[in-house]
Structure formats: C-alpha cells, structure tokens
Write a protein that binds this DNA or RNA. Sequence first.
DNA 1: AGAAAAAACTAGCGAGCGTTCGTTTTTTAT
DNA 2: ATAAAAAACGAACGCTCGCTAGTTTTTTCT
Lengths: 238, 238
Amino acid sequence: MTFAQFSRRESLSPGDICREMLEGHRESIKTKKEHTAVRNLELILAATLAVSNQKGFQAMSMRDLSLASGLSMGALYDYFSSKEELLEMIQATGRRLTRRVLERGIEGIDDPVARLTAAIRTHVYLSEALQAWFFFSYMEARHLGEEEKEKAKQSELYTEGVLSEIIAQGQAAGVFAPLDRHLAAAMIKAMLQDWYLKRWKYAGRRVGVDRYADFVVQMALSFCLSGGGADASGEITL
Amino acid sequence: MTFAQFSRRESLSPGDICREMLEGHRESIKTKKEHTAVRNLELILAATLAVSNQKGFQAMSMRDLSLASGLSMGALYDYFSSKEELLEMIQATGRRLTRRVLERGIEGIDDPVARLTAAIRTHVYLSEALQAWFFFSYMEARHLGEEEKEKAKQSELYTEGVLSEIIAQGQAAGVFAPLDRHLAAAMIKAMLQDWYLKRWKYAGRRVGVDRYADFVVQMALSFCLSGGGADASGEITL
DNA sequence: AGAAAAAACTAGCGAGCGTTCGTTTTTTAT
DNA sequence: ATAAAAAACGAACGCTCGCTAGTTTTTTCT
C-alpha cells in the first residue's frame, strides 16, 4: 500500500470530516441546515488549525478566528458554546476518526508481519492526510479539562494496544522474539508521532511519506523479528 | 552506566543550573548579589515549570507566577523584562546545558557501539534529571519568536547530528549496516523524546529510567547492526 | 410578494492580562 | 545608630480577552 492508494480508499476530505463532526454534535449546533452547517464548520476548522498550529490554541483569540474564518463572532458561537467546547469537538472527532480508520486498515489481515506493517502504514498515512489535525490534537491535549484529557490518554493507549496485541500475536505464533511488547509498541508509537510533529525536519530533508512509512516498518520488523540481537537478556514478555 | 552513576557525575541541582542561568543573563538581571539572585531564580524557575507544565506557558499569568513563586509582581521583573524573555532565558539555558552534558557523555569513547550506547544513555538520563525542563522546552518552543525558534530547531538538529555521526562512524568501520543514518538518528531521537513527553505512561507501567534506556539502546543497536534484515533494499547512505 | 424562520452581524460588557512606578522594607556600610 | 543602597512590594494603567444581546440580513415557504 502507498499513500496514493490509501487516499483513494479513505474519504477524508474536509467536507466528509465536518459532516461527521456535525453528526456528533448536532444538539449543540444551532444551525439547522446541514449544507450550511458543514460549510461553516469547514471554515471554522481550517481557520482554527491554521491559526492554532502557528501560535497555539490559547493564544488564538476569537477575533483571530473570526478574521481567519470569515465568520462574525456571533456566527461562530452558533457552532460551539465556548472556546473550550470547540477544542473538545475537534479532539473528539479526531479520536473517532483515528479509531475507525485504523481498525479498517488492519481488519482481515492475519499474518503478524503483514498486520504490523498495515497498522504502521495506515497510521503514517492517516496522519499525513490529517497532519494539521494530528499536530493540533497532540499539542493542545493539555489544555483540555480533566475529563477530556483522560479520553485523550485512553486514545493514545488504544493505538498502542493495537500494536501491542499484534506483537503478542506474532510472539504466540513464534515469529516475533520474546521482547517487552508494551515497550516495543510505545517506541513504534513514538516513531509514528514524529512524522506529524516534526514535519519541518522531514520536509527539509525531502523525505516523503512513503519512504518514512517504509523506514518505520523496517525498523519495527527488524527489532521484533531479531529481538535485539544477542543480548535480548531474558526480557519478560508480559 | 546507570542513572544513579550519572547523577553523581553531573551536578544538576537547581542551584547549579540557576547559577549558570544567572551568568548567561547577568546584564538583564537587576539584582546584584549572586546569592539572592540565584535563590530567587530557583523560585521563579520551579514555579514557572510547575504552573506551565500543567496549564501551558501562555495560560500562566504573571499573577499565577507571583503566587506560585512567592515573589511580588515587581520583584519578578527584576529578573526579566517581559514574559517572553523569561521563556527565552529558560530555553537558552536548557540548550547550553544539553549540549555540554551530551558532549561530556561521549567524549573519549571511540568504539561506535559503545559511543552510540553512551549517547543514548546520557540523553535519557539527562532528560530524567531535568524532566520538567525538557518537557517545558519541547512544548513551549512554538511560542518563541522567529529567531529563538530557529535556535531551538538547530538544537534539535545538533542532537540528531551527534547520533547520525556516530552511525556514520560505525558504518565506515564496517560495524553498522548501510542504512539511512539520518532517518535512523531521527527515529532514535523520537524514542528519546518519548521518555520525557509521556511520563504518565511509563510511570503507570512502572517502567524505570534504566530499563527504558536499556530498551532504546537495544532497539537502536539491533537495527544498526542488522540493518533491517533481508530488505535493507540498497538504501543510500549519503 | 410577503410573512415567518434562520442565519449572520456588531458594538459593548466585565474580567483579567502584562507591565510599570512610586513607595516601603530590608540590608549594607560607616 | 544612621544614612545610603538594594531589594521587594502592590495598586493602578491601558488593553485585549471570551462572550452576549439586540438587531439586521438572508432564506424559506405559502
């Protein structure tokens, strides 16, 4: 699978995403007509990500957002009741989307090596398609309330759990070495995150998304298959 | 080397660091007596990291800082001329410190495997000793001005360059496989950063600093030594 | 075309922000 | 003990913030 193939398979246009966002928050959005609501959500979303990813969500004022989106202050508040709710809406939609796409990306693949490969590629490609969104979610998670912050952590643990389970599967099949699968999953996750957090670095080096995905797959498999060479040192699997 | 040994070797007490901070910003700090200045810098630093790492630097008001540090608003401004300068002071001191400790941690070690191991361990241990500082520097780098932001990027590239050069050295010696050393260094860096960015995760799983460092070393060496198994696919070393 | 409903707008509120400056307190030196 | 120097203080200033209410504009439906 390449990024081009992934893009064709998944429908991740701003319109699609905002329609999903609308469905998830229909009760708190005052605008009735779907078409209008989706169009304005697109404007709000694009503006929020653009401004926030440059100066931070806290530093973005509602006046900034009004200017960047082309909507008046009053109109903005037809879509959320407070700045904090806007933040939560974006985060919640991102979590749902990630979960769904990731599940779809690995379903039906049983071979551990192929399944781990698919999970990694799907995550890298998804974060490429929604780079601004992923960056935003990562950097602004700390500004959420306690309750929502907990959900963000659970979401991170979910992704890691997917990787960890695949490794366990491979170990049970005798294909992967008996290394600490939780730590291994955490390391793979860290590598996945670097793609959307340090975009400037890879852009400067002209590393494309396919090459990046290849490399992470290679590194993960190399480690899981060989188990860290001679000194796997009897690490407990658990 | 273990974390305990590292801590004994390096003097990274709040007092030491604030003394260094004072030396680097003597001209802009109004307080004359070193003892007083260092004491108050310690208070300011501890309070800034505590409050900022919880709610973000932007969201921390000067009144928050005054309350948390025990110093009056006026007294705070004897140590910096603006909130932004406080941010820059902390970042600059962290960069200098990281560079110095990292260099000291690998000097005199020539064997590539041992040198890569030392670089990784030193970085993990340093970020453990100054966890709050590292977390702060990472999360707040985007709120710097253009000029300082550039320095932060350079600092990240410097660390990666250290890793990358060690890999090149190992490749020249025929010990490491001919993989893309820049990408490999970036992946190792990503793993190093996860230690101080996702502390809650590792604390919850009772993973200690020594085990973490071990694991990263193992994963990095496994990959560099074996080269990703059969499909290293003729990656250019550059 | 005209009335009702929906959407969008604007000016302004009170609160809290970063910063300053005249004053008071503490320390140092005679 | 007292005067000079250093350090600490905190009320107040000008501004910008998130948010709202009252009104106007646009769309929908008969």
